[in-house]
Amino acid sequence: MKGLKPTMLALCVAGVPPAAMAEIQRLDDSTMGNITGQAGVTIELETRLNIDRFIYTDEGSMEINDIFVGGANRTDMFAEMNLNLNGVASSNLDNIRINIDLANDGDAIINLLPITFHAVDLRVATGAWNLVGTGGSTTILDNFQMDMLIGSGTIRIDTATDKLNFKTDIAIDDMDFDVPFLALGIQDFEMTGADYDLSAPQPLRLFAGVEMDIYKAPNSQNVESLAVDLQAFNADIRIGGVIVGGTSIGSLALDNLAITNTSMLIYGH
Rank of each mutant, 00 (worst) to 15 (best):
D236H: 02
G245P: 01
P180K: 09
D174V: 07
F177W: 11
T262S: 08
V179R: 04
A208P: 02
T247S: 13
T168M: 13
I239D: 03
M175Q: 07
A235D: 00
N165C: 04
S251N: 14
L184V: 05
I259T: 09
N130I: 08
A253T: 15
G133D: 15
S137P: 05
A128L: 03
I237M: 08
S251Q: 11
V228K: 07
I249V: 14
Q221S: 13
D213C: 09
Q221V: 06
D174C: 13
S248K: 07
I150Q: 00
P218K: 14
I237H: 02
T138R: 07
V244G: 05
R156Q: 14
L254M: 12
A232I: 07
M175A: 12
S152C: 12
M175G: 01
L182C: 11
T134I: 13
S199V: 11
R156I: 14
Y196V: 04
D147N: 15
D142Y: 06
G250V: 08
A200G: 12
K167C: 11
A217F: 12
D158W: 01
G133I: 08
I243T: 04
L184I: 07
L252Q: 14
I214W: 02
S137M: 09
T154E: 15
G136S: 09
V244Q: 12
I155C: 04
G127F: 08
A200M: 05
V210Y: 02
I172Q: 00
I172E: 03
K216S: 14
T168E: 09
